[in-house]
Simulated assay, not measured.
Amino acid sequence: MFRVNRLCPATLVVAFVAPLAALTFGRASLAHAEPADIAFTWNVPDECPSRAHVLERVGEIAGGHMAEASHVEVDAKIVQTNAYAMTITIRRGGEVETRRATSASCAALGDAAAIIVALALDPSRGAGEPAAQTPPSSSSPLPPGGDLEHGAPVQAPAPSMFPASSATSQRPPPAPSTRPSPASPVKPFGLRAGAVFDVGTLPAPVFGVEARFMAVFGPVQLGLGGELFAPVRETYSAATGAGARFQLFDLGAFGCFAPTRGPWRVGACAGADATWMTLEGIGVRVPSSSTLSWPTVRAGALAEYTLTHQAFLFARADAVFALADRRAVLTTSTGDQTLHEVPVLALRLALGLRANIF
C-alpha cells in the first residue's frame, strides 16, 4: 500500500530534481549567450510564466552552452485541476525523454522546466561521462520559485540523454529567485455564501441569502444548503387593509460540472430542493398563519472567477420548477379568495463568494 504525505519543500524538490540538481552546471558570468538551436513549445495557462521568461531562465542557467548546443526540440504543457501538472518532452537526435510533475505553483514548474531544458543544451553531457549521481540530500538547492509537490510520478532519469555529471563538479547552482513561496494546495471542502434574487415564486420579486457547504473535486462541485428570502407583504383590500405576509425558504442539494479555463470555471448545474412558504393573514378579523410546502428542481449555469488560491467569486442563474400545484387561499364570509398561486417556473439569480477552508 502506498501513502502520500505532504513533504517539506526541500524534500519535494529533491524528489523531482535530484537527478537534475547533480547535473546543474555553473557559468563564469550571467551574460546572455548566443541563441541556441532550440524549438520550444510552451503551452500553459495564462497565469503561468511566459515562454520568453522560461527561455531567459534557460539562458541564465546554461550560460555559454546555449551557443554550443545541438538541435533540441522541447514540448512543454501545463494544465490545472486542483494543482498544476506539467508534462515536458525533449528530443535531441534520436533520443526522446518525458518528465512529469505537479505543484501548487505554476512558477515553480516554469523554473523546473528551465533547468531541464538547460541540461539538454549542454553538448558535453554524453554517454562517455560518469553515470554516478550525487545522492539526494535535504540540502540540495531548491529551484527558484518554490517547492514542487509530490503528485504525478516523475520518470526515472536513467538511462537518459542527460547523464549525471561527476559529484566533484565545482560549478555553483543558479542564483535563487526572489519569487514568494507558492500557496498551499487547493483544499477540496469549503463554504459558499451570497445574495440571491427570486422572480416568480412569491407575489413580488424578492432578495434573499444563500449558504451552502461545498465539496470540489476537479471540475465537479457538490453542494448542500439552503436559501432564505425576505418577507413580502401583499394587500388585497384597500378599504380594509386586508392582506397577507409571505416568506420563502428552501433546503436542498445540487451538483455542477465546471471545467477550469485559466482563472475561470464555467459550467452547468442541477439540483433538487424542499421548499416552504409561510403565510400570515394581516388586517383580517381572525388572523391566522399556515405553511405550504412542495418539491422543486432546478437547472442552470455557473461561472466562477479565481480571486486567490482558495477564494472564488461566483455567479449563478437557475430555472426553478415547482413540482406541485400550490396556492394560498383567504377564506371570507363571501367565499374563498385566491391570494397567490405558485407558478410552475421561476427564475433565481445568485452572486457571492466561495472559499475552500479545509
Results as ranks from 00 to 15, higher is better:
I88E: 06
A69H: 06
P263N: 12
E280F: 05
T332K: 11
F312Q: 04
P182A: 13
P130T: 15
F16E: 07
R233V: 14
A242F: 05
H309I: 00
P176Q: 13
A230W: 11
A33F: 05
D46G: 04
A193L: 14
R92N: 06
G208W: 10
L330G: 00
S139A: 14
R57N: 05
A350V: 02
P343S: 04
L148G: 05
V186I: 07
P143K: 00
V154H: 05
F25W: 07
T81V: 07
A62F: 06
Q133A: 13
G128C: 10
L12M: 02
S184T: 11
A311R: 10
P173T: 09
E60K: 12
A152I: 08
R327V: 00
S166I: 03
S293Y: 13
T235E: 13
P135F: 10
F2G: 12
P136W: 06
T89C: 06
L142P: 03
L148I: 15
L191P: 01
R265F: 01
K77R: 14
L20I: 09
E34P: 02
H53Q: 15
A76H: 02
P205W: 09
T41C: 00
F229I: 08
A107E: 03
H32M: 12
A193P: 02
P231C: 08
P231K: 06
R6Q: 10
V14K: 02
D318L: 03
V199E: 07
R51E: 15
P123D: 13
G208L: 04
T331C: 00
S139I: 01
H32S: 13
A239Y: 09
V216T: 15
A15Y: 11
H32G: 04
L349V: 10
L345Q: 11
E68G: 00
A31K: 10
Q133I: 00
P263S: 14
E341T: 14
P123T: 05
P123S: 10
S105A: 13
A299G: 15
L224W: 06
F358S: 09
S288N: 13
M1P: 09
L55D: 00
G26L: 10
A85E: 12
E60G: 01
